[in-house]
Each structure stands twice: as structure tokens, then as C-alpha cells.
Design a protein around this nucleic acid. Structure first.
Length: 943
RNA sequence: GCCCGGGUGGCGGAAUGGUUUACGCAGAGGACUUAAAAUCCUUGACCCGAAAGGGUUUGUGGGUUCGACUCCCACCCUGGGCACCA
């Protein structure tokens, strides 16, 4: 018996495939009829010195299986691989090891390539791309120039995030929790002149296009959140005794009547302009100085108490109330968002409340919640839930506390919609009951919130089918006595609530619970939700959502949209990256390097360490820096910063199919045929950085007329993370699994399949050596099945068709774990199977275990490769079994199982069922009320 | 705080509203072997029971349904992302 020897087999076929260039597609050739170009892309790796780890193997295998599947389905699959070799990562490593990044990178790439070749993937090595090669970064620089020409690249002085350890500025996206993404040192704020890409110009398109692309929903959500569109209004506040005005951005214009003060960010330009008017300038200046010195982390520390200084002598006018309100500077307001100034509404914003409490500023409540019974949302046309709930809410004017005392159900028909607010009966009834149950007598009616408000609410939520059903009756305690709530009283009310309302803290909604409990406990808290306006002049009683628009109009404000997204800061004061192709001339100013002079080569220098002065190490290389102005030929200096690594990887997929073009970054016809990418697979960790930048670059290239599409990847799927004992693998933890020893011990096929079998591809899994023997056994058994050469037996028609269907569907949805499971089931029956079954098994298995299936296929005497076989089709009719195990239930409980013909009729099945001893026992003498029959599945006898 | 996931045997994980636990690992029993490894066969949620059989069970509590891991409401736990973004 020939034993399965993966090492030998894999070495043999790897060689043969390379010799035959088995996976190279001719990108120029028009695809044969019926075959479509299929660009199967995976995120290219950063070639680390440690080499490939199982996380890479996982990602690439999952992607490769997809590519192989599409190839067997008759597409021309282009599956390239390359290296993201520029960047801080490589450079930091070289610094630590005392080597040069160039030499180090070359070494790493060599090692990586060797490892990747073992994987058995479809990689077309003739088109590998390395971002640190001049022939690649020449075009990265070209891309910069195009963006510059289009006005999408600009230089500006701005407060930027600076990593003191990496000694460079960072993009907004690379700062995590106030720390550097790379080295975790605390990021500082610095005011520097830097290059930016105007990604914000595309904010709206980046957001809208998400609807039309087929990406994992999680990734889309992450992008949406990052772009952070928020709709609101800009409202102008006049400054008393001044021609100056303050513009404030708010998402809650409905709370304008509650704006009791204003706050500037310390960097706000008006602070300086108002200097003459500010009476306590010394104090203000001191605060400004302090704010400047704080790091980003210190400023955004949530536990930190809010600080600020009033601008004495400066008063703003609330356009709604016409009241004069104080103005502060405080660092809890960010200069970089909105207008850098806010109207503070302490009653409805937690941060404002915290500040107002500390500085004893007035708090005016302008929105109060309504309570909604979500348990039985009434739907028009359904009688049984048509009813109306009345809350009696008692407000204590002394401390503003609200007690929700009553929950009474009325028949909906008694109170026709719309008339409720004026319906005295409700008020009287509520008052009587509240008085009875609380003993409070001096109740003053504040308001009845009824049908109208709720109808508006539902209209605003496009839920017109619902009728209004909640009414709140608000009382003030007019008298002075009995205002304090004792512990016993609280308990009594709580019991009352539970008893009468049938509402428990468990089934209340979040909002209800939060408000109710915080009121009881006397905690101050701001109500952030929607509700009904109070203390808002003529807008009292209006739905807060509807009031937004009305109040903006009233205050002559403007609707405005703001984004969280910032422009992409791409300058890096480092060595290992593409120099930014810009020349500064005293006469001509900023001059882009002419395209014919590209690449601006990165000079080979000995000392490439970051300087920390805010200048790149290149600034000390005179031969690099000093140059001629392309325009006037006079003396000029080069830009010495390099660009962000993310720019390298933002366009690499354009280069892959065009590597042979030396005079252009990509060829129009080639791109037209092969792009956008058919399927992109990569890690979820790039959901916002890389994937947002690639989309931006693609949109920009389209608008500049270079390409005809605006989204780079038709489909994107994120794979999960491979952990070790539940922890993320990292060098610092020392738990990185190197796949090499497993390749040697079990072979690549086994490693591939084991990883895919761990769990759903999108969710990753935990690497342990335990389960790998299961896959090893499976492959050995399959191997022996073929080599044992027993004569053909049965034909597993039904199972074969079922398996083909299952595997095909699972592959389409990247559900590799269940595909493998069904292949195992199929192979477990294979001792009864004939030649056709064995061949089908090999073909279905080929994308997972390319080496072994190829070997066995050739052992079966086939000349052609198993990977060139067409993907098998299944016959729907054959998928169904003839006899089926019917489940027999009595009152929904399984009491028997019977094997019957698949097409057994309801009557037949019921008769069979009732004859069963088991069933008779359960049915007994009871009358059969009803029989539920699901064809081909079950009979449920209800008695 | 906000936004996404997830919670099913000893473990990884399967389950169009229809037998919970497919497939695999570990375990138990057996065969082969002087023996072990490897391999093959059998078994496999929990409780009661000798067995037949019965009861319980998909984080918790409710609801809808003939029937719920699956749908609805609320809660708890947990992994991840974002966060003084007005």
C-alpha cells in the first residue's frame, strides 16, 4: 500500500507547475468564449524578518481556494502576489538590528517568497510587485503629482500628531487611543507644515458608494462610522458690543432654547480677535499656554475633569431667547471639528452638564421624554392591542425630580386620536388616581402629551401604520410639603409601579429605565433622546425632531453636514519611503518634479535614523536636497519628507496586471479588461485605513480621467483572526506560530485544510496542534482510497449530487469549514463508491488540497491536471432522497420517527402516524384537533 | 457612552421556524499486535431507569407559534471597533 507522503508529492508538483507555468494567465489575450477575466486579489504582506506566520497562511489559503474555485468554474483567474516593503515597520526593524532597510528588505522578501511558494497557491510570480523598488515607487510619486495637479494634494501648517519615538507625524487614522499605532508611544501635538490629501472632498461619495458595493457589512459599518457624517445646523450667535459673531455647529438645534453658555476651543481664532474686550486676558492666556503643552492623550482623557476659563467681558446672545450668555474657552471643545465653537446645552449634553455643574452655570431643560410601551406596539387593524397608556408624571419643582407614578390602561376607543390633549376626563381620572395612590394633593397640571405628539413622532419615523398610544400627564407638585422622597416612599412607589403597571425594570426600554431610575435616585443626568419641547416659547409641546428644522429657520441658522473624516496627512519625516516629488524654489515657489525626472530616487545613505527635529533624515543629505529648479533652473531645494506607506498600498492592484509597462503606471486597455478587482480578501484591521485610501485614490483617478470606474473592489470579504490560546499572535507575546514546521511535518495541503476547518473563514479561529491529525487522517484515507485500486462498486448518486451542491454553495459563500465537513461525509461513504465518486471527490477537494488531488488524479491515469477539470454540476432531482425519516410529533414534541417515501401525502402520513404504537400511547382517547403536515419532513398531531 | 459581533456537549464548531449537537478533536469499549504506535469497528449531551421509556437542555426571563438555537421584547455575560466629533 502506497503511503501518503506529502513532502515528496508537494515538491514534485510544485516543480512541475512552475516548469509549466501552470497558473500564468495571458493578460493580453482576450479570454476564450465563456471565460471571464477574474482578478482574485489578496492583501499583500509586509515582508517581516520573522517570515510568514499562520495568519498569512490562513488569509492566503482562503483567498486561493476562492481563486481555484473560480478557475475551475471556467474563469481566467489572475492571482498575483507582492510585497508592501516600504515603511516605518521595516525601517524600525533595521534600526534595531543595525542593518540597512534595503538589505534587510531584500533578505526578507527572499525568505517570504520561498515560504509562499510552498503554499500551493495560484500566484503568478512573473508579476510580483515590490513597493520599495524604484520602478514601483516612481509611479507612487507620479500618483502624488497627479493629485497635486488636480488640487487634491496641498501643504498646510496644522496641528498634527507626532510620535516622539518614531519621530514622525502620523495620520489621524494611525493614532490609536492617543498612542502611535506602530510603537504605542504617546502621541504629541505639533504645529508643522505638512502635505495632505484632500480625502474629505470625497467624504460624501465614499459614504454613498458603500451602498452599491458588495462588501462585508462589518467593514461598511466601520467605514461609515469613520467617515462619521452628522447632520446638524450652523447657528450664528451675536457678540454683545461687537461686530463679531460666533458660529456654532450643533446636531441638536431643537435644544437652542436650552443653550445657556458658549465654548470656544483654545485654538479658536476669535479668542485672539476678542483680546481687547476680554477683561481677564492674563488668566485666559495662561490657560491657552497650558492647553498647548498638553498632549492629545491628556486632552482627551475621559476621566479628566473638564477645565475652562470664562472670557470675562464677552457675552453672546442666544438668538432664540435673546438672553445674554457667558462665553468660555475650554479644551473639551475640539478646534478641528465643526466650527471649533459650540453652544452649550447642559440639560441635554453630558459634557456640557459636567462643565456647567462645575462652573455653576444655569441648566435649562427643554426636552422631556415620552414613555412608550414597546411591548404591545399597536398596529392599525389589530384590535387587541388598541389601547392607550396614561402615565401620571409628577414633577417636583424644587429639585426638578420627576416621579412616574401611574400607569393606567384605557381602552383606545374611548379616546379618539387627536382629542386627547383636551380631554378633561383623562386628566381628572389621572389626577384622582395619583392623589389616591400617593397622597399628594396639590397637583398642578403641566401638560398632557397625547395623540398629536405621538402621531408626529411616528410620521417622522415613517411608521404611519401605527397609531399613537402613549399619553403622559405631567403634574407639578404645587405645594411645598411632601417633596422629599423617603426610602420607604420610594419602595412604595416602586411596588406600586410593579403592581399596577405590569412593567418591570426588566421589560422597560433602555431609555425608560435610564430615566426612571436616575430620577428615582436623584442623579442628575442629561436627557439625550427625542421628546417634547418645553421652556421653548412658541415651540412648546412640539416634537423635538420636528422642531429641529423649525428652530433652525427661526434662528436664521443653516443646515449643515459635518464629517469626522479628516484630510489624509501623508508626510513622514523618515527615510524608508518614496520621497515626495516636490522642489522648493525661492523664485518660483513650490514646483512639482516633472514627470520625466521620476523617480526621485531615495539616496543610499548610511545614517538613515530619524532626527526628531521635525525634518527627515534626507534633509541632511546635501546631494539629495540641493537641486535645480525645473522652471527657472536656479538653485532650489527638494522636499525631504517621504510619503506614508499607505500611499504605496493604495494603488498596487493597478500595477500587478501592468508590470511590463515601463513608461506608465498602468495601461488603460489592460485595466479596462481586468479591473475593478473581482474579489478582494483581507484582514478586518484594514477596514478603515487601507480600504478607505484605496477607494479615495480610485475615485480621484477616475475624476482625473485615468480610469472609468470609481470603486476598486467589486467584492470584499474580511477574514477572521487566527489566535493562539485565545490571544492575538504577536512578537512581543512570543506566541507567533511559524508554519514551516507544520509544512514539514504534515505538508501544505494538511495545513491549508486544517486552517480552513477551524471555523467560519470570516471568524478565524484558535490555532492548536490538536485537531490537525483529523485532517491528516482524512487526507491519508482519501489517498489510500485511490491507491488501493479496488474495483468499482456502487454509484452514490444521491450523496454525490448533494455533496456537489453543498460544496459549491459553501465555496460561493466562503464557508470552507462546512464544505470540508461535507467532503468528509462523502469520503466516509466512499468504500461503497465507484470511480465516478472518487473522481468527483478529487475535483471537489482540489481547491483545498491542490497537491494531493493532482497526484491522485494522475495516479488514476489522467494526463490533464485535476485543476483543469470543469467544476461538476449537480442534478436537483438527484439531490433529494427517495425515502425520508419523517418526524412524528404530538403537540410539538417528537414521539416517533418513521421512514416513509419522500412524496408521502398528508393523509397517508397521518394514517401511518396514528397507527404507531408510540403515537397511540400519546394521543390516547383525545380528539385530534389538528394535524400539521410538512411534506417530506414531519407530521404534528395536535390534541 | 456609542457601534458591530458572539453565548449550543469535555473542546473547535453544525443546524431554510420542523429529530439540537452534522463534521472533526479528545474520551470510553473492542479488533489487529508479544507490546506500543498507527489503523479499523462500536459508542458518545445531562438526569431518572435493569430495560422499554420518560424528563431536562442551545446565557437569563418573557412573548408569538401546532412547533423557537432560529422571529419579537427585555436583561446578563463576553470579544472587537470608535470615542470630549457638540
Amino acid at each position: 500500500m502506497a503511503n501518503y507522503n506529502p513532502q515528496q508529492i508537494e515538491a514534485k508538483w510544485a516543480k512541475a507547475w512552475e516548469r509549466k507555468k501552470a497558473w500564468q494567465v495571458d493578460l493580453k489575450k482576450v479570454s476564450a468564449k465563456g471565460r471571464k477575466p477574474y482578478y482574485n486579489l489578496m492583501m499583500f504582506p509586509y515582508p517581516s524578518a520573522e517570515g510568514l506566520h499562520v495568519g498569512n497562511v490562513y488569509a492566503f489559503t482562503g483567498s486561493d481556494i476562492h481563486g481555484r474555485f473560480e478557475r475551475m468554474r471556467g474563469n481566467d483567474v489572475f492571482e498575483p502576489m507582492g510585497f508592501d516593503s516600504f515603511g516605518i515597520h521595516s525601517e524600525n526593524f533595521a534600526i534595531k538590528m543595525g542593518t540597512h532597510p534595503k538589505a534587510q528588505t531584500a533578505k526578507n522578501i527572499k525568505h517570504f517568497t520561498e515560504q509562499l511558494k510552498q503554499l500551493g497557491a495560484l500566484f503568478d510570480w512573473s508579476r510580483a510587485v515590490t513597493t520599495s523598488e524604484p520602478e514601483y515607487y516612481k509611479w507612487t510619486q507620479w500618483l502624488f503629482l497627479q493629485l497635486y495637479k488636480a488640487g487634491l494634494a496641498y501643504k498646510a501648517k496644522a496641528p498634527v500628531d507626532w510620535c516622539p519615538s518614531c519621530k514622525t507625524v502620523l495620520a489621524n487614522e494611525q493614532v490609536i487611543d492617543g498612542k502611535c499605532e506602530r510603537c504605542s508611544s504617546q502621541v504629541m501635538q505639533k504645529e508643522l507644515e505638512q502635505w495632505f490629501f484632500r480625502i474629505t472632498k470625497y467624504a460624501d461619495k465614499l459614504l454613498k458608494n458603500l451602498e452599491k458595493i458588495d462588501w462585508s457589512e462589518r467593514t461598511k459599518i466601520a467605514q461609515r462610522n469613520w467617515i462619521g457624517r452628522s447632520e446638524g445646523a450652523q447657528i450664528e450667535f451675536k457678540i454683545q458690543n461687537s461686530s463679531l459673531k460666533i458660529n456654532a455647529f450643533t446636531t441638536r438645534p431643537d435644544t437652542l432654547f436650552g443653550a445657556t453658555y458658549m465654548v470656544f476651543a483654545p485654538e479658536h481664532e476669535l479668542v485672539e480677535k476678542l483680546k481687547s474686550q476680554i477683561k481677564n486676558w492674563g488668566e485666559v492666556q495662561k490657560y491657552l499656554e497650558e492647553a498647548k503643552q498638553k498632549s492629545e492623550l491628556e486632552r482627551t482623557e475621559l476621566t479628566k475633569e473638564k477645565t475652562g476659563v470664562e472670557l470675562k467681558g464677552v457675552r453672546a446672545v442666544n438668538p432664540a431667547t435673546k438672553e445674554n450668555i457667558p462665553v468660555f474657552i475650554a479644551d473639551y471643545v475640539l478646534a478641528s471639528y465643526g466650527t471649533g465653537a459650540i453652544m452649550a446645552v447642559p440639560a441635554h449634553d453630558e459634557r456640557d452638564l459636567e462643565f456647567a455643574t462645575k462652573y455653576k452655570l444655569p441648566i435649562t431643560e427643554v426636552v422631556i421624554p415620552w414613555l412608550i410601551d414597546k411591548r404591545n406596539p399597536p398596529v392599525a387593524g389589530k384590535k387587541k392591542v388598541e389601547r392607550r397608556n396614561v402615565h401620571a408624571i409628577v414633577r417636583n419643582p424644587k429639585d426638578g425630580k420627576i416621579l412616574c407614578l401611574k400607569w393606567k390602561k384605557f381602552n383606545w376607543l374611548t379616546f379618539p386620536m387627536g382629542g386627547v390633549e383636551e380631554n378633561e376626563d383623562i386628566v381628572k381620572a389621572a389626577r384622582r388616581e395619583v392623589e389616591e395612590e400617593t397622597g399628594y394633593t396639590n397637583l398642578k397640571l403641566v401638560r398632557v402629551l397625547g395623540g398629536q405628539v405621538c402621531a408626529e413622532y411616528f410620521a417622522a419615523h415613517k411608521d404611519e401604520n401605527r397609531v399613537s398610544y402613549t399619553t403622559a400627564v405631567l403634574f407639578d407638585l404645587a405645594g411645598e410639603d411632601r417633596v422629599e422622597v423617603s426610602e420607604e416612599e420610594k419602595e412604595r412607589h416602586e411596588a406600586l409601579w410593579l403592581e399596577k403597571s405590569q412593567i418591570t425594570p426588566q421589560n422597560m426600554t433602555h431609555t425608560e429605565t435610564g430615566i426612571w431610575l436616575s430620577r428615582w435616585e436623584g442623579k442628575s443626568g442629561s436627557y439625550l433622546g427625542e421628546g417634547v419641547l418645553i421652556n421653548s416659547g412658541k415651540f412648546n409641546g412640539m416634537n423635538s425632531k420636528l422642531a429641529m428644522g423649525e428652530i433652525v429657520k427661526f434662528a436664521k441658522g443653516q443646515k449643515k453636514v459635518n464629517y469626522h473624516l479628516r484630510d489624509w496627512l501623508i508626510s513622514r519625516q523618515r527615510y524608508w519611503g518614496p520621497p515626495i516629488p516636490i522642489i522648493y524654489c525661492k523664485k518660483c515657489g513650490t514646483v512639482p518634479v516633472p514627470e520625466k525626472d521620476l523617480p526621485v530616487k531615495l539616496p543610499e545613505v548610511k545614517d538613515f535614523r530619524p532626527t526628531g527635529t521635525g525634518k527627515s533624515p534626507l534633509a541632511s543629505v546635501a546631494s539629495f536636497m540641493n537641486t535645480k529648479c525645473p522652471k527657472c533652473k536656479g538653485k532650489a531645494e527638494r522636499e525631504t519628507d517621504v510619503s506614508d506607506t499607505f500611499l504605496d498600498s493604495a494603488w498596487y492592484f493597478f500595477r500587478y496586471p501592468c508590470t511590463e509597462f515601463k513608461n506608465k503606471p498602468f495601461d488603460k486597455a489592460r485595466v479596462k479588461k481586468w479591473l475593478p478587482v473581482s474579489m478582494y480578501i483581507g484582514g478586518q484591521e484594514h477596514a478603515v485605513l487601507h480600504l478607505l485610501y484605496t477607494r479615495f485614490i480610485t475615485m480621484a483617478l477616475k475624476d482625473m480621467g485615468h480610469i472609468a470606474f470609481d470603486e476598486p473592489f467589486k467584492k470584499f470579504r474580511a477574514h477572521g483572526l487566527i489566535t493562539k490560546e485565545g490571544a492575538k499572535m504577536s512578537k512581543s507575546k512570543g506566541n507567533v506560530v511559524n508554519p514551516d514546521e507544520y509544512f514539514v511535518k504534515y505538508g501544505a495541503d494538511t495545513v491549508r485544510m486544517y486552517l480552513m476547518f477551524l471555523g467560519p473563514f470570516a471568524e478565524g479561529g484558535d490555532w492548536s496542534d490538536k485537531g490537525i491529525v483529523g485532517i491528516c487522517r482524512f487526507l491519508s484515507r482519501a489517498f489510500e482510497l485511490v491507491t488501493a485500486k479496488t474495483e468499482a462498486k456502487n454509484d452514490l448518486v444521491s450523496l454525490r449530487n448533494k455533496t456537489i451542491k453543498k460544496v459549491t454553495e459553501d465555496l460561493e459563500n466562503l464557508r470552507y469549514n462546512t464544505a470540508i465537513a461535507s467532503l468528509m461525509e462523502y469520503s466516509n461513504e466512499m468504500k461503497d463508491g465507484g470511480k465516478k465518486d472518487i473522481e468527483t471527490l478529487l475535483i471537489l477537494l482540489a481547491p483545498f488540497a491542490p497537491y494531493m488531488t493532482e497526484e491522485l488524479w494522475s495516479k488514476l491515469g489522467h494526463k490533464d491536471s485535476v485543476h483543469n477539470q470543469p467544476w461538476p454540476k449537480y442534478d436537483v432531482k438527484q439531490v433529494k432522497a427517495e425515502r425520508i425519516r419523517f418526524i412524528i410529533q404530538v403537540n410539538g414534541k417528537v414521539r416517533d420517527v418513521m421512514e416513509l417515501a419522500a412524496d408521502t401525502s398528508e393523509k397517508q402520513a397521518t394514517d401511518f402516524a396514528l397507527k404507531s404504537r408510540n403515537i397511540r400511547k400519546w394521543v390516547g382517547n383525545s380528539k385530534v384537533k389538528r394535524v400539521v403536515f410538512v411534506p417530506g419532513r414531519l407530521v404534528n398531531i395536535v390534541v
